[in-house]
Nucleic acid binder design. Structure first.
Length: 906
DNA sequence: ATCCTCCCCTAC
DNA sequence: TAAGGTAGGGGAGGAT
């Protein structure tokens, strides 16, 4: 029995042990009861279980009946081995699901028609057909055509080449066992393409970054890449759920009913009203392992690790490898740094720790594959995530390894998030397997106590995903998180207010979020290991040792306090891609090609997030002077110097050519021998957001070709902001010329959702408070009788203004241009006869709304009249639509600002 | 004072 | 063999 349960003896929730099972079996009982009334007609679907996702034809109910009549199983909750029947899935779902078993309902229908179970793979919703592999094979050739300058394939030629390649591959004695295939083989190949294909299919050559397929291959296998991508993905998912939700949660009602219906559960009702906030932290237990064990129940209870390595001995030593020298460099560097400053890089400590774990002789040639996740049984033997397999095997010779299952992680994470989302959307996504939930409102609404809710939720998650999780509760995010740590594995813990002080006293500083090895080391050298001990330090002292912010944060944290609220909506601030593995160039050409590819990767991500950026940073890892050329870890980066160089553009861009050009320029400036490079990264910051395709619209072209002096724009924007700020601060006298109703002005910088639902600025303004704003604006007839006296609203206003000031440091779109210039631009745009682009329209709307907000009504009238006349003159329907939309949005802005539409005279 | 660049640190 | 990514917070120190 875990300690935390001892602290909370019988409060009835043990009875919940079977809650999910009860719920599921009840639903399934109903199903079989109903199904049982019909006789079984066939056994076509014997051994097949389905889960229906969304609207289908036949409907879920019909499918249910069909399954039961023909020997199959219908699940109300999705289980891991279910076929998922769906006719279409929303984009977000598609992104987050393992699509390998998402099947069209036709599969069922046609199987019935054929009176046998057809191959589901022919009915995959997003399927790659079974012949896909061959198609890909040809595609490689086509894609690489540009490289094969002189040789063009026609179809027949392709066939010949392919069969030749197959022949080559299949001849046993031609496969080389060396690191490289024999030179002659490559020279005999008919083209560069064939060489590539040969290399790939022989598997004899390991891909390095010089290979055009390397980035894709690397990312496909990189755990860190997946962790990072999934995390971002679920943050976005929550953003979207919140934007599209009506904040009704049917699961709550369901739960309430079950609670009411059952005597067993009555004592779960919340007896007292919890007046403080209750934050819940949910974290899956050793996530990767748990997901992997779903298919390997035989390994449950054993020490298990997820890794690329198969667990066998590492290969024999490669020539040139000198682990001692390399590890010593890390150690020396650490010592050197410690002598001069307390700062030590994360990486070195990480490596150093690993080195410490390794018995020199034993592990000199052990596998350097990293452990992504290990089970609690393995942890008991001293293993930890990130450890090398070599040292892990030494500590735990019977360690079982299982491979990665990235699709599985995604699927489970998706199920996890959607399960929680049935109860509340006050979720802060931390990563694919971890989140915070503000359940204050939820608990009082459902009239359930904390432990009861935790039990229900954990049961439900386990039932749906097959994976255990732990949850912690507390008055703030820090407490919730520490509670989870105590609860693990597969437990729950409520850190109540009265326990906090004692609880914090023994918490290790290293266990505080934000305190990593470096900070912990510094604190340790100050003589502090635990929170209790650190509480004796003064705020000033902490600040002087760790910096202002970090010091202040730690001061609060070691007392169990955490002023940071949950953030439900996230706005991305940078986009980057980096590869520090497999970087081995032979010449400048390969390096350049790689830079181009990596730029394309960043560009495509920017495109995906609709982001434009102003600042481009290139990060290079270069072999340090004394480091061995051959790294200890196969194709690793080894001991390196790191260089960061950035360039600030005048205008935000999402243009691939611009990015590539700047990146190459930055790289060339460093003048580094490409053969010494070990890692490359590209980051884009100072983001702006667009709604359009990255197509350069007419206005963008205009802006791009007519570079506006930075200083000028900056000063104009600053002036504008000062003005806005003043108007929005009730205590500051307003300077507006057209002040129709001064008391209403504070609300105006908040653009109503209808005004700001598109366009880049809306993104930055759409913050957690937006929901509040939404409700407020919808419920209150904005502009009539402005209730900004409400302190809550005022706080929101202030927040929005501050954010606006912060976001508007950079000029964007048309803002900052004089109105007559915009008029000229509009004319040129209309005259050009080009189809209006969404991004341009949004920019115009932004500009005009800005005029409304600035009460620049006269100039606005001129522009609107001009726009109306010229639109009429063009006689274009597309333009008429554009005009109508612009007009509508401007009117909306007027309602928000003045409380009424101002009709612009002709 | 405030901003910018180049780091470092942390988290998953 | 092996797949050492990525985003955000923050600090030091120089430029303005």
């Amino acid at each position: 029995m875990r300690r935390n349960e001892d602290k909370f003896p019988d409060n009835g929730f043990e009875a919940w042990g079977g809650y999910m099972h009860a719920k599921i079996s009840k639903l399934e009982e109903q199903f079989s009861a109903r199904a049982g009334t019909e006789e079984t007609l066939s056994n076509i679907f014997n051994g097949v279980s389905i889960y229906v996702n969304g609207f289908t034809v036949p409907s879920a109910d019909e499918l249910k009946v069909l399954m039961s009549k023909h020997g199959g199983v219908y699940h109300v909750y999705q289980r891991s081995d279910d076929y998922i029947i769906a006719s279409n899935l929303p984009d977000t779902k598609v992104k987050n699901m393992n699509l390998a078993k998402v099947v069209k309902p036709q599969w069922i229908v046609e199987s019935l028609a054929a009176n046998r179970l057809l191959d589901y793979r022919d009915y995959l919703l997003y399927g790659t057909s079974r012949t896909q592999k061959q198609i890909n094979f040809r595609k490689i050739i086509k894609e690489n055509d540009s490289l094969a300058n002189d040789i063009k394939f026609n179809d027949t030629k392709q066939e010949q080449d392919l069969s030749e390649i197959h022949k080559t591959i299949n001849e046993p004695n031609t496969t080389t066992s060396d690191q490289k295939p024999s030179k002659e083989r490559l020279d005999n190949a008919t083209s560069l393409d064939c060489q590539e294909i040969l290399k790939q299919n022989l598997g004899a050559v390991t891909k390095t970054a010089a290979d055009p397929e390397f980035i894709a291959e690397f990312y496909k296998n990189s755990r860190l890449h997946h962790i990072s991508q999934l995390g971002a993905c679920f943050k976005q998912h929550i953003n979207e759920l919140r934007e599209n939700s009506n904040f009704q949660f049917p699961a709550r009602e369901q739960l309430k009913e079950i609670i009411l219906a059952s005597n067993n559960f009555k004592n779960l009702s919340q007896l007292k009203f919890e007046k403080n906030k209750i934050i819940m932290h949910i974290d899956m237990d050793c996530f990767f392992v748990s997901v992997g064990l779903r298919n390997r129940p035989d390994l449950k209870g054993k020490p298990v690790a997820v890794t690329h390595s198969k667990g066998g001995q590492g290969r024999s030593k490669r020539p040139g490898v000198d682990r001692d020298t390399e590890f010593n460099l890390y150690k020396q560097n650490k010592a050197k740094k410690l002598g001069i400053t307390t700062g030590i890089s994360h990486d070195e400590i990480k490596i150093e720790n690993r080195v410490d774990d390794i018995d020199e002789e034993d592990s000199k040639y052990g596998s350097m594959s990293e452990i992504a996740s290990c089970s609690y049984e393995a942890r008991a033997k001293g293993l930890s995530n990130g450890m090398f397999m070599g040292s892990a095997l030494r500590l735990c010779p019977d360690l079982q390894t299982i491979p990665y299952d990235f699709d599985g992680y995604k699927e489970v994470a998706y199920t996890l998030y959607n399960t929680i989302a049935q109860y509340s959307l006050d979720i802060e996504a931390v990563s694919c397997d971890e989140m915070y939930l503000d359940c204050t409102e939820l608990l009082s609404d459902m009239n359930v106590n904390v432990q009861g809710f935790a039990t229900i939720l954990r049961e439900e998650i386990k039932a749906k995903t097959g994976c255990p999780c732990s949850t912690g509760f507390g008055g703030n995010r820090l407490q919730a998180r520490l509670a989870t740590k105590k609860a693990k594995p597969d437990g729950q813990f409520f850190l109540t207010e009265d326990l906090v002080e004692d609880f914090m006293y023994d918490i290790k500083l290293r266990d505080l979020p934000g305190v990593g090895s470096q900070t912990a080391y510094k604190l340790e050298s100050l003589g502090h290991i635990t929170c209790g001990s650190l509480q004796t330090l003064t705020l000033a002292s902490l600040k002087s040792h760790l910096g202002n912010k970090t010091g202040a944060q730690l001061f609060e944290q070691c007392r169990g306090r955490d002023p940071n609220p949950l953030t439900f909506h996230t706005v991305r601030k940078s986009v980057s891609a980096e590869v520090n593995y497999g970087i081995r160039f032979e010449n400048n050409y390969q390096c350049l090609e790689f830079l181009k590819q990596l730029s394309a990767e960043v560009h495509s991500r920017m495109h995906q997030f609709k982001a434009m950026g102003k600042c481009i940073t290139l990060k290079l890892m270069v072999r340090a002077k004394d480091a061995p050329v051959e790294t200890a870890k196969f194709l690793g980066h080894g001991y390196c110097d790191v260089i960061n160089k950035s360039v600030s553009l005048q205008t935000a861009t999402n243009d691939l050519e611009v990015i590539t050009k700047e990146v190459i320029l930055l790289c060339k400036k460093q003048n580094i021998d490409p053969t010494e490079m070990r890692g490359i990264g590209i980051q884009v910051t100072k983001l702006d957001y667009v709604t359009s395709r990255p197509t350069v619209g007419a206005i963008n072209k205009f802006l791009f070709n007519n570079k506006i002096p930075k200083a000028k724009i900056k000063s104009e924007i600053k002036a504008e902001l000062v003005e806005t700020d003043q108007r929005n601060n009730p205590t500051t006298p307003t300077k507006s010329k057209v002040s129709t109703s001064p008391k209403k002005s504070p609300i105006i910088s908040i653009k109503s959702p209808t005004i700001r639902k598109r366009g880049r600025p809306s993104k930055s303004l759409r913050q957690p408070s937006n929901n509040l704003m939404n409700k407020f604006l919808q419920g209150q007839n904005v502009g009539r009788d402005v209730p900004y006296k409400d302190p809550m609203i005022r706080a929101v206003v202030k927040e929005e203004v501050e954010r606006k000031v912060e976001q508007s440091q950079t000029p964007r779109g048309l803002l900052g241009l004089p109105w007559n210039k915009v008029r000229a631009l509009l004319r040129a745009w209309l005259d050009s006869g080009e189809t209006p682009l969404q991004c341009d329209v949004v920019m115009i709307i932004d500009y005009l709304q800005e005029m409304v907000i600035n009460k620049n009504i006269e100039k606005l009238q001129v522009l609107m009249n001009f726009l109306r006349r010229t639109t009429r003159d063009t006689g274009s329907v597309a333009w008429l639509e554009v005009y109508n939309r612009i007009s509508e949005e401007v009117q909306n802005a007027m309602v928000a600002v003045y409380g009424k539409k101002l009709y612009i005279s002709n």
